[in-house]
Design a protein around this nucleic acid. Structure first.
Length: 682
RNA sequence: GCCGAUGUAGCUCAGCUGGUAGAGCAACUGAUUCGUAAUCAGUAGGUCAGCGGUUCAAAUCCGCUCAUCGGCUCCA
């Protein structure tokens, strides 16, 4: 092999020897011009580096960096995306990414962000650019401009983008000395670009710039070959965003857009958004009359209507039974407690911002509880405990109130008053791992029982650099994190460790569930606490007759009953499984003369423990069926002369339609069995 | 909390550049008595989110407050 040639390995394993400086585009062309036209970007991996052993942290690091605004970076394998026009200078494994590849889509979106920036600067030259990364749903560009962009401005930007795309300007990568770039950006008052160059490059380095037409942007790339390759896009919205994510900083305008390989995918995307909207628990909550939030009462406070209340009762009954079955004891603790208590617990110091201000009662100050733990601790402390009593597992469906800033509330998912299915386990250090393991198993069962099959686990640990936000010694934190890890490892549960996300009193295992649309929701949490036992000087008498300090596990599995319910609504799109459905059976008498028989059927179904609604209004049968259907009632029973004569019902099953007449007793058995099995399909 | 948008009947929404509020569905009344997603007719229903201002006149223009929505930040 000569100095002038390099080896390029293609995905099929074949190796080509080409001249040094050959571009991925050249190689695509040499394979087929059709391929060259379809390729978006190239992925290369130096052959000098051994192949990766599967998915690694490098992917996530690269991901995080892309999110942070800079572009695809080399992981530890050296694998990276490059422009099709980038000359290859070493032996590489080369992959040509076409329009069916996730990574290629991100590149298209990133290029779309440049196209948008081009358009914005042409229309509003005074605008200063921040960063413009691709996201999971599209892209955005953070920009600074005195006047906010209006709807009309967004439309104009989108129209201008179409022009930029039509011009089909080549994306050209250029390099220039860092100092030169800095100087130019400084002169233009581009404070954000100056910041990025200073942060992402080192003195003496060259910086990379991407140009298309008259537009230049400091950017790592890669990009699609030309603006014409951004074929399907839309500017969607604009919102405020803080410079560098810090609310003390300048507020920027974040212009959002999305882009796809083709118009069909774009259309599909908006269809999906509509689908999500139709599942929105706030919309369904209204349509199905499940809950409300009322302006006179205040933001973030939930009113559970009868039907929502019934579902809640079903959820809670299930939870209580399961807790008791697993050796928990149900307790109840007050909603307001004296301020002193919150001082002892550390909430005054570490959680005050989330608590409502104290209220004066007689000569004392009281505060509304944001957590249930201190209450449970007082119960523990109320009588001496022996090692024989441990573990003590106290469970409560406790109502807590937390102050949330006004712009943060969101239906049932982010509220100011909510109910935690909270429990605190007091145990010996030897018991801690089995208790945590049992909690993780319990959480798994809860999610499965409610129809969630998939979830992701995160281990939130402290940030040793930010010790003022946490209580306890480094040693404590290490042992606590160690035991959580040990449990997860022993169970073979994959998890992601996230430093800086722990509660102030200890590390935690968070379980995020994935709903039918693939969205992630934070619900269950299992937390280790070595702090509160110490603060409250909890003790138990050991086998040795000496006093020992118990350790404590906090755990909430629904997390918040409100949030869990919200997620449940969206997961099922309001079509709850039979055991949860507030109305399980709707009865439709065909005409008024069948109401008597219908009432008798209703009585029998209710006697069998089913929740039934009889529509005896003077309405047409079809109208009644329609209403039950729209209310997503699992079973609608239609009955006329035929049914009345033979003690039968005509069954209409949600999602299936008319299933014909069956004997009433047969239907009762079917429904009862389905409720008992908590089946999710009818 | 911050940026932007929005707030009209129970619900979904219309109401142009200021001239004093409208539809469909729901509700109620009556007729109809019906075989698997809307029978017909009539009646009633609104402090136009709240407060203040400009004006001869405000749902409409301005200010403040509250709430909601999309984000940011923060979080169960």
């Amino acid at each position: 092999m000569s100095e002038q040639s390099i080896k390029v390995q293609l995905p099929d394993g074949s190796v080509r020897e080409v001249a040094r400086g050959t571009t991925p585009f050249d190689i695509a062309m040499s394979i087929s011009p059709r391929l060259a036209a379809a390729v978006v970007v190239a992925r290369v991996r130096p052959l000098a580096v051994p192949a990766p052993a599967g998915e690694t942290a490098a992917d996530e690091a690269a991901e995080a960096q892309t999110e942070a605004g800079m572009y695809s970076s080399a992981g530890e394998t050296g694998e990276r995306l490059v422009d099709l026009s980038a000359p290859l200078t070493e032996d590489v494994a080369l992959e040509l990414l076409k329009e069916n590849d996730e990574a290629a889509l991100k590149v298209v979106r990133h290029s779309a962000a440049h196209v948008m920036a081009t358009a914005i600067l042409e229309l509003f030259p005074e605008t200063k650019l921040g960063h413009g990364p691709a996201t999971d749903a599209g892209f955005f560009y953070d920009v600074y401009r005195e006047t906010p962009f209006s709807e009309t401005d967004l439309a104009a930007i989108e129209a201008k983008m179409a022009e930029v795309v039509a011009r089909d300007e080549k994306f050209v990568r250029e390099h220039e000395p860092r100092e030169k770039g800095l100087e130019e950006y400084r002169q233009h008052g581009d404070f954000m670009k100056v910041h990025f160059i200073e942060r992402f490059t080192k003195p003496g380095e060259e910086i990379s710039l991407y140009k298309n037409g008259n537009f230049t942007d400091f950017c790592r790339g890669p990009h699609v070959p030309s603006t014409g390759r951004v074929k399907a896009f839309k500017v969607t919205s604009v919102a405020g965003a803080y410079w560098l994510g810090d609310e003390k900083n300048q507020q920027l305008q974040r212009v959002y857009g999305t882009a796809f390989f083709n118009a069909k995918d774009l259309e599909q995307h908006f269809k999906r958004l509509e689908e999500i909207k139709a599942r929105d628990h706030r919309v369904l909550g209204k349509q199905l009359d499940l809950f409300s939030i009322q302006e006179v009462a205040g933001a973030g406070l939930i009113f559970w209507h009868p039907k929502g209340g019934l579902i809640r009762k079903t959820m809670e009954d299930w939870m209580r039974d399961e807790c008791i079955r697993r050796g928990y004891e149900m307790v109840f603790t007050p909603h307001i407690m004296r301020r002193e208590l919150w001082k002892i617990s550390g909430h005054e110091g570490f959680y005050s911002q989330n608590m409502y201000p104290p209220m004066e009662l007689d000569d004392a100050e009281y505060r509304l509880k944001p957590m249930n733990c201190p209450g449970h601790i007082l119960i523990y402390k109320n009588s001496p405990k022996s090692y024989r009593d441990l573990p003590q597992r106290y469970a409560e469906l406790g109502n807590v109130y937390r102050y949330e800033r006004s712009g943060t509330m969101h239906g049932l998912l982010r509220v100011r008053g909510f109910t935690q299915d909270d429990a605190h386990i007091f145990c010996t250090p030897e018991q801690i791992e089995s208790e945590i393991a049992a909690c993780v198993e319990f959480a798994d069962e809860v999610l499965k029982a409610f129809g969630f099959a998939e979830f992701k686990v995160e281990l939130s640990t402290w940030d040793p650099k930010d010790q003022k936000s946490y209580v306890g010694s480094a040693e404590h934190w290490e042992t606590a994190v160690g035991s959580l890890k040990k449990v997860l490892d022993a169970k073979g549960i994959p998890y992601r460790e996230i430093p800086g996300e722990a509660a102030f009193y200890g590390p935690k295992i968070d379980i995020k569930l994935v709903d039918v649309l693939g969205r992630l929701w934070q619900l269950s949490t299992v937390q280790f606490d070595f702090n509160l036992p110490q603060r409250f000087e909890l003790e138990y008498t050991g086998e040795d007759g000496e006093k020992h300090r118990p350790v404590m596990v906090h755990r909430a599995l629904f997390g918040s009953v409100e949030r869990f319910f919200g997620v449940l609504i969206e997961h099922y799109a309001g079509a709850f499984p039979l055991w949860l459905a507030p109305v399980q059976v709707g009865i439709v008498p065909i005409s008024e003369k069948h109401v008597e028989y219908a009432a008798a059927v209703k009585a029998k179904l209710e006697a069998a423990g089913l929740r039934v609604e009889l529509d005896s209004r003077n309405e047409k049968m079809n109208a009644k069926i329609r209403e039950f259907t729209m209310q997503k009632v699992p079973f609608v029973l239609v009955m006329g002369d035929k049914e009345a004569a033979s003690e039968a019902v005509s069954v209409r099953t949600r999602g299936k339609g008319d299933e014909g007449s069956v004997p009433l007793t047969a239907f009762v058995e079917r429904a009862k069995a389905l409720v008992a099995s908590r089946g999710t399909t009818l």
